[in-house]
């Protein structure tokens, strides 16, 4: 059963886009992904309007105070397993708005993030690359026998004490393991 669901998820991940206080730069690039030149649907990616049907949450923006609570609520509404992709410099770290009075700064201060795509804004090709890498991490090629990326289990409490999550933290062990496999 797990294999079937993983296969279904990787072949057709449904993504939800949430703007948590972005300047529209990243958002327009996400929409551009759907259009003929980039056409993300050829990877089976479908933009889904409801959080309850989404597998992947694409978050843009620096997370304003007013959006933080909503972002967490949307994340909680998504069914398990769920993955979060932070798109753009603001979503990764707060970007140019970090330190402003109405800005929390970074998606990972509110909800756990699976993948980071930096750039201001990242080019559509970069977003595409990030999404495809995430899909590959979910369903690694069989001969390598990698561990599957565990989806984040618990929602972290909102704001107050900012907790730094090092980007690509989850990606590292996967690579090391591959090396050891090769040695054996």
């Amino acid at each position: 059963m797990t294999n079937t669901t993983t296969w279904a998820r990787v072949k057709s991940p449904w993504v939800l886009h949430f703007n948590s206080g972005a300047c529209n730069g990243c958002d327009i690039e996400i929409v551009a992904l759907l259009t003929p030149k980039y056409d993300v649907e050829r990877f089976g990616v479908k933009l889904e309007p409801s959080p309850r049907h989404a597998d992947v949450l694409l978050v843009t923006g620096c997370v304003t105070q007013q959006c933080a609570e909503r972002l967490k609520r949307i994340y909680d509404q998504m069914p398990q397993p769920k993955f979060v992709v932070a798109i753009g410099a603001c979503a990764c770290s707060g970007g140019v708005f970090d330190g402003n009075y109405n800005v929390v700064g970074g998606v990972d201060k509110v909800i756990p993030v699976t993948a980071y795509i930096p750039g201001c804004p990242p080019r559509p090709e970069a977003i595409l690359d990030g999404v495809v890498k995430l899909l590959n991490a979910l369903n690694p090629p069989k001969q390598k026998k990698q561990k599957q990326l565990e989806p984040p289990k618990e929602t972290k409490p909102v704001v107050s004490e900012p907790e730094v999550i090092v980007p690509s933290q989850e990606a590292k062990p996967v690579i090391e393991e591959t090396k050891t496999n090769v040695k054996q």
Partner: peptide, 28 residues
């Protein structure tokens, strides 16, 4: 929901830095 306090933030940056800050009011 998208209020980032750019007007206040621009008071703590130099004129040259502010060009890049106000540019990011809107990506369009």
């Amino acid at each position: 929901y998208v209020h980032r306090g750019i007007e206040k933030a621009s008071e703590s940056r130099t004129y040259l830095q502010d060009v890049y800050l106000v540019e990011r009011i809107c990506g369009i």
